[in-house]
Design a binder for these strands. Structure first.
Lengths: 342, 342
DNA sequence: GACGTCATCCAAAGCGCTTTGAAAGCGATT
DNA sequence: AATCGCTTTCAAAGCGCTTTGGATGACGTC
C-alpha cells in the first residue's frame, strides 16, 4: 500500500492525502479524518526512503561505537547509554543507526557517514582530550553532541558530561577525611578526556591536605575486572601498600575486591574503596544498602539527555552549542571506613 | 555531489556512471577506471535513500532490544553481540538499526518496522518458549534469525543457539562428580527459552546420579549481581545449604561470591560454583587461570555468525531455514572443588 | 554491399514521497 | 454582475538513484 493507491482509493490527490497525514493546516478537518481512518484501516505507512529522498532528511541518528583493537573490548556502558538515547529517538520518530568499528579507522567511518548523509546527527562517544572527530564533524556540518568533553578542542561544541573532576575530588576527599594517606588511583585509559579530569580531581583533593601525589599510586588502563584485580594485587604485594583505592568503575572495583579477598582482607575495614558508578541496570550498586561507596551518575539518563539535546539542535539549529554538566552523587556504602591504625 | 553532476563532469550518461561504479560488465574497462577515479577525487558517494528507493532495499538490519519494564534492565550481552553482528554487517555494506523498546510493546514495533519496510532483515533477541514474534515475522515475510530458540514454535525458522542443555548438564555433572549432592540452580527468567533448556540439563545431570531435583534449590530471575547475592544469602541462612551452585551468568556468579565472602566462606573449598560465561569483553573470566569454573561460549562470536547467516539468507533466499548449534567449553577454574566432607 | 554480432553507451521511465504553483468553489463585498 | 478573499483541492515537478529498451558504431561474415 503506497500513497498513490491510498489516494486513488480515497478519490483524492496524493497532495491532499500527504498533507492530511502530515498535519498541514490547508485541509478540511473532515477529509483529514477520512484519510486518517483509511490509512489506519489499510495499514498504510509511508516509505521512509521515499520520504527521506523527498525531504532530504534521514530521520536517523548515528552512533559509532569503537572497539578497542587491543582488547577487543566494547565499553559496557554503551548498552545503557543507547537504551536511554534510543528511547528518546523513538518518541520523536527517529531511528538509531549504529556502526561498530575498530578504533583505528573510526575517523574513516565518520567521513563515510558524512558523504552518504545517512544520518541527521551523531553522538560522539568516548572523546579523547584532543579528539579529531570534533573538528571533523564541524567541518562536515553534521549536528553532533559529545558524550563527554575534549579539553583541547579549539572551538565550542555541544556536549553532555559528568563533572568528573568534582566526582573524583569528592571521592578522594572522602578517603582523606577518613584518615587515609596512601590512596591509589585506578583510572581509565590515559588518552580519555574523562581520565584526565578524574586525575585532576584526585590530585586536587590530595593536595588540599598536603599529600604529595605519588606516581607509583596512579594507574590507568582499560576498565576491566582483570585490570582492577591485577593492579591491586601488585600494589598489595609491595611495601607501603595503599589503604584506600579510588576506582573508575564498578567492574574495576569488583576486581580490586577480588584481590582483597584473595588475601582475606576485609573491604571497608582493612582497605577502603570508592568507585565511580555508572548505575548500570545489570550491575546496581545494591538497592537498599550500597555495596560500594561510590560517586553515582546514571549513564542511561545521560543517554536520554544527550539524545534530547541533539534532537533539539536538529530542530532549532541554535547559534551557540548547548552544554550540560551533570553532577554525581556520593553514595556512602560498605566499602569505605576509617584508615586502619597501624 | 550527486550522480548527475558527476556524469556531467565526465561527459557521460548517468546510466554509464552508475554501471561503472556498481561493477556491471557492459562498460569499457577504461571508462570504468576513469569514472572510479573521478568519483574518488570528487568525493562522490551515492545517496543511500535514493538508492534504496530505486532498488527497494534498505541495506539495513534491524535489532530491537527490549527493556524489561520491571527492572529497566538492558541485557549486558547486547553490547558484545551487536559488536559481532555489526562487524559482519559493515563488511557487507549493511547498516545496523536499533530500536529500544519496553518489552510490552515489542510486537507493535515489529509490526511498525514491517509496515515501513525499513530493514531487509532482523535479528530476534531473547526468544521466549512460545515467542509470538516468530510467526509474526514469518507472516510479514521479513527474513530473520533468532538468537536462541523457541521450543514451542510451530514451523521451522532460522536460529543460532548455544547448546544450553548440554552446557548445564555438563556443569551440574562436574559438581556431582566432585561429590556434591545439594546443588542449587540460579537460572534466568523462566519465560526465556534458554532458561528452560538449562533447567532440563541440570535436572538430567542430577537424575543420572539418582539425585532428586529439589524445587527449593531452583531459582530464576533477572540475571543481576543482586539476584545472585540475595538468593545465595537466603540459601545459606537456611538448613541444608547447598554446597554447589550452577549459575546462569558471570554477573550472577559474582553476586553469589559476594554472599560467600560475607560469611567468610571460600569459593572452591567450602562452596563450589559453576557458571555460564558469555565471554564478555569487559568481564573476562581470567586470562591465564580462570576465576570461575564455567561453560564458556562467546556471545560476540554468536553475533558474527547470526549476522552472517542473516546476510546469506537475504542474498540467497534458501528454501529451508538454516540453523546453527554452538557447543560450550567447560573451563575448569578455581571456583569448584570437592564437596566438603561433613 | 548487406547483414548479423558485439561492445559500449544513452534517454527516459520509475521508485514513493513532498512541495510548488495554480485552480476551483463559494460566500461576501462592491 | 463583477471582484475579492478564503478554503480546499489538485497536477506536476523534483529528490537521486537504478534499470529497461533501445541506439550507435565497429567489425567480421557471407
Amino acid at each position: 500500500m503506497n500513497l498513490k493507491q491510498l489516494s486513488e482509493h480515497l478519490q483524492l490527490s496524493q497532495t491532499t492525502v500527504s498533507r492530511a497525514l502530515n498535519g498541514y493546516p490547508e485541509v478540511n478537518e473532515e477529509t483529514r479524518k477520512r484519510v486518517q481512518k483509511a490509512a489506519a484501516e489499510l495499514n498504510y505507512a509511508p516509505n521512509p526512503r521515499a520520504k527521506g529522498l523527498a525531504t532530504g532528511r534521514s530521520m536517523a541518528i548515528g552512533h559509532v561505537i569503537p572497539i578497542s583493537i587491543k582488547h577487543e573490548m566494547v565499553n559496557p556502558v554503551f548498552g545503557d547509554f543507547i537504551a536511554g538515547a534510543g528511547e528518546t529517538y523513538a518518541k520523536a520518530g527517529f531511528d538509531l543507526v549504529m556502526s561498530v568499528v575498530s578504533d583505528q579507522d573510526e575517523e574513516k567511518v565518520y567521513r563515510e557517514i558524512a558523504r552518504k548523509r545517512s544520518v541527521d546527527g551523531m553522538i560522539v562517544h568516548g572523546p579523547k582530550m584532543d579528539d579529531p572527530r570534533i573538528p571533523l564533524l564541524q567541518e562536515l556540518g553534521i549536528p553532533f553532541v559529545v558524550h563527554g568533553r575534549a579539553s583541547l578542542a579549539a572551538s565550542p561544541y555541544a556536549w553532555v558530561d559528568v563533572n568528573n573532576q568534582r566526582a573524583f575530588d569528592g571521592a578522594t576527599s572522602h578517603l582523606v577525611k577518613l584518615g587515609h594517606t596512601r590512596i591509589a588511583l585506578l583510572n581509565g585509559p590515559e588518552s580519555m578526556d574523562f581520565a584526565f579530569r578524574r586525575r585532576n580531581g584526585y590530585i586536587a583533593a590530595l593536595g588540599r591536605d598536603g599529600i604529595e601525589p605519588d606516581p607509583r599510586m596512579m594507574f590507568s588502563g582499560e576498565m576491566t575486572e582483570q585490570f582492577g584485580f591485577e593492579t591491586a594485587q601488585c600494589l598489595m604485594s609491595g611495601d607501603a601498600a595503599p589503604t584506600g583505592y579510588v576506582v573508575s568503575s564498578m567492574i574495576v572495583a569488583i576486581g580490586v575486591r577480588r584481590a582483597l579477598e584473595a588475601r582475606r582482607l576485609r573491604m571497608g575495614r582493612d582497605v577502603s574503596i570508592v568507585t565511580y558508578d555508572d548505575d548500570l541496570s545489570y550491575l546496581r550498586n545494591g538497592d537498599t544498602d550500597p555495596i560500594f561507596t561510590a560517586t553515582r551518575s546514571s549513564v542511561r539518563a545521560a543517554g536520554v539527555l544527550s539524545g534530547q539535546m541533539l534532537l533539539d539542535m536538529i530542530a532549532k539549529q541554535p547559534a551557540d552549542p548547548p552544554t550540560l554538566l551533570l553532577e554525581t552523587e556520593l553514595v556512602i556504602g560498605g566499602s569505605s571506613g576509617p584508615a586502619p591504625t597501624s
